[in-house]
Design a protein around this nucleic acid. Structure first.
Lengths: 170, 170
DNA sequence: TAAGATAATGAGTCGAGACTCATTTTCCAA
DNA sequence: TTGGAAAATGAGTCTCGACTCATTATCTTA
């Protein structure tokens, strides 16, 4: 791959992440191109359809989250991760909007990391033993969606998470 | 209002609810007209913009939910309502998609009804006293969103709600 | 029942945004 | 350097869906 192509690909991904985070996935490809400082044709050379572009940034986002999750651990790693995700969701739209797009494997990777956080929390006695990974993932997704939608303030976020943490607690 | 106009208005609302529930709010007005057995111009005579149509069915939906909530009560009325909402969300998309549209008053009405359910549950000792209406509403919205997105099966739904109920429990 | 008001019709306008491609520019290997 | 392959450009095409309006049909009241 030529050097300029590589560079532009990165720029486009960065711009897309920014634009879609603020305006939602219905923002136009044109706008992404403008922010990336690139012609629209260039965007479509790298990502033949808009969905390809969305899938690419979703993959990046999920990988990044999985990495973050993997870096945490201990008794309250799961709690920290929960809180962090919700904060991101409230600020940006991307992760949440993207649920329609499918990126084989990427979700699984995040699931693994969350599963590990859950295991550690259970080992530390912070979380009940009979809670499974699926419902933790479901709760994560739900709360992100809710936070995005409702535009929660800090207090509401705390109170809502408090209920969920209480439900998870041993 | 002429009799035919009244009849068509109802047909359009019913059709819109059906169409948007299945295909999401991005379904075309054309399709609503087709299902209602009416020309597209008729839809726009009754609802000048698509948003007006969306607002109208949202208002109906919220009123219906508020009514349902008001009809419940007792120690586990809140739990029943939770479960019912989540089931609806998993089957239809409308309520959830519509979060962008605003219908002054309608949400407040639902909030009242849920607040009453919460009060009764707390009086019966089924729910902790320090839980407030805002976080209950937030949880409701979140779980509906999550269920819609994730296409939860029965088991996942139960397990997820179990965590939340445990968090609410006294 | 007939006139006039109200409503329905649906082909057509308009704008937006995804995507194309002939042309021009940039890179890089020899 | 330079030739040719790879990439970028951006005006233009195409589709889709919201919305309009001149015309036709239907209701209702006197």
């Amino acid at each position: 791959m030529r050097a300029d192509a590589q560079r532009n690909r990165e720029r486009i991904l960065d711009a897309a992440e920014e634009v879609f985070a603020h305006r939602g996935t219905s923002a136009s490809t044109e706008e992404v191109a403008r922010l990336a400082g690139v012609a629209i044709g260039t965007v479509f050379r790298h990502f033949p359809t808009k969905d390809d572009l969305l899938a690419a940034i979703l993959k990046r986002l999920l990988a990044r989250l999985a990495e973050e999750a993997a870096a945490l651990g201990g008794a309250d790693g799961l709690h920290v991760f929960f809180r962090r995700l919700v904060e991101q969701a409230a600020a940006k739209r991307t992760v949440v909007d993207l649920a329609g797009v499918s990126v084989p494997g990427a979700v699984g990777q995040l699931g693994e990391a969350v599963g590990e956080l859950l295991r550690q929390a259970q080992a530390a006695g912070t979380v009940r033993g009979d809670v499974g990974r699926p419902e933790v993932m479901a709760l994560l997704v739900s709360v992100c969606q809710g936070a995005l939608q409702g535009g929660w303030d800090m207090e509401l976020q705390e109170r809502t998470l408090a209920v969920i943490f209480a439900g998870l607690a041993a």
